[in-house]
């Protein structure tokens, strides 16, 4: 692949804190290598800002290898930028051309308040997981991994759902700010495995209740989440979530 350098204009959302009114700032970056990742390009810009005595741009990042789900930039109208099935850290600058203007915004949803610049508070996802995204296991020695047989097809589907890194791109892309792709991935991951069965019903009820409490919207099956998901979580999981939730609530004992 041809290596080239480029000059870019960046319009980046700057916001001091959760209560401050933010706005776009325009920055020029020069001699950006096409081999850099998008985050490395921001690192270069931040070096310049620090040298000028200015406040660097705050953004979330951790593993920089596409598995932690920290990076969360809405680039040119798309969560995680223009590439399919890619996180921002794996997005490389060869996705852009010399002279381009790139607009970078934080995730937008009431349930994801902006903490600073491009950093949003995604602890709503943690609270949804705490509400039911776990299984019960006995303490003591680890049991033999093969002691409970698992159907291969279900194991594959469960594994595909478990690939969700909880980055929040589904919420960012959804016109309803719905978190259902995330919740459905977590529910499917456990509901498809025998280990997830003891809490299967309470999990669906409690995680959906927490999701509603956090103020996420409801799913209208448009498919924007599936199209933008860096881990290609399928929207079919949302239909499975609906089935899990409805069967759990319809078979509930309370009147």
């Amino acid at each position: 692949m041809e290596h080239y350098n480029m000059n870019l204009t960046l319009k980046i959302w700057r916001q001091k804190n959760v209560n401050a009114k933010g706005g776009f700032e325009t920055y020029k970056v020069t001699d950006i290598s096409s081999e850099m990742s998008f985050l490395e390009m921001i690192d270069v810009l931040n070096e310049d800002l620090i040298n000028e005595g200015k406040d660097p741009i705050a953004f979330d990042h951790d593993c920089r290898e596409g598995i932690c789900g920290s990076c969360s930039m809405y680039i040119n109208g798309k969560p995680h930028g223009p590439w399919k099935a890619t996180t921002v850290c794996q997005l490389h600058m060869r996705a852009f051309k010399d002279g381009e203007t790139i607009v970078v915004e934080p995730w937008r949803a009431n349930s994801f308040p902006v903490v600073k610049d491009l950093v949003v508070d995604r602890s709503a996802f943690d609270r949804i997981i705490q509400a039911g995204g776990y299984i019960s296991v006995n303490t003591g020695n680890a049991v033999d991994g093969n002691s409970i047989p698992v159907d291969k097809d279900k194991a594959d589907k469960s594994f595909a759902a478990a690939a969700c890194i909880a980055c929040g791109a589904c919420v960012a892309a959804c016109k309803n700010s719905s978190a259902m792709l995330f919740v459905s991935a977590k529910i499917s991951h456990l509901a498809l495995l025998p280990q997830g069965h003891p809490e299967r019903k309470s999990r669906a009820i409690n995680m959906v209740a927490q999701m509603d409490k956090e103020g996420f919207g409801s799913c209208t099956n448009i498919g924007a989440c599936e199209a933008t998901c860096p881990k290609e979580i399928q929207i079919t999981n949302i239909a499975r979530l609906n089935a899990e939730y409805l069967s759990a609530s319809l078979s509930s004992d309370k009147d």
Binding site: G77, R108, S218, I222, A224, T228
Partner: peptide
């Protein structure tokens, strides 16, 4: 439901997501 869903993003995006992955009539 429409009113509730429309109220979930008080601050919108400068660049809209557009029609990627969804049909206009679905939205």
């Amino acid at each position: 439901l429409t009113a509730a869903n429309n109220s979930k993003r008080k601050v919108g995006y400068a660049v809209e997501y557009g029609n990627r992955g969804s049909k206009w009539y679905s939205r």
